[in-house]
Amino acid sequence: MIVDRVTIVQTNVANMASVTAAFERLGVQVVSTDDPDQIASARCIVLPGVGSFSAGMQRLRSANLVDALATRIRDRRPTLAICLGLQLLCTNSEESAGIDGLGVVDATVTRFPASCCVPQFGWNEVRPGAKHTLLKPGFAYFANSYRLANVPGSWSVSFADHGGPFVAAIEDGPVLACQFHPELSADWGRELLCRWLARCASEVVPC
């Protein structure tokens, strides 16, 4: 089965255009929605995200998307989370004290050390974890001030370095969550999106 359509979670914050353009260049139709039923049932979901952790969670809560997203990730159904999207999967974040994340990744998001240039803006080298099958070594584009230092559990974890190692991406089956922006990572990012789509195609079960 070929994946010819992805559904983007409409977060009403920036970056939808770049994500949409990246998939369209691959010949994949993009629809966006904030309807919980559609997000629960869609074959492939993309959770983009820029802006603050609290604004992102507030948006997911007000659209009643928390359960739909958390459930599909727990069930290992095809989902790509990008940048803040990765952070929203976590328990919470230093950026927004007292705000709960989706809680499907048992970790707290923390700020880069003060010794670093923050935000991290630019291309950093990704070192795929031993269990990673989607990620290859290469340069990815990052734009973030907060990050995960590590991720426990069954996730395969890839790292990059900025003031020490940080989590560049995590992967489990057809669930891929990237701190970087694959849609802005040139050919390397394009190839990653292709592999994720192929993985989704092989894992999709009819609803």
Partner: peptide, 8 residues
């Protein structure tokens, strides 16, 4: 920054 993030 508040609407779109400092990274924007």
């Amino acid at each position: 920054a508040e609407a779109f993030g400092v990274q924007c």
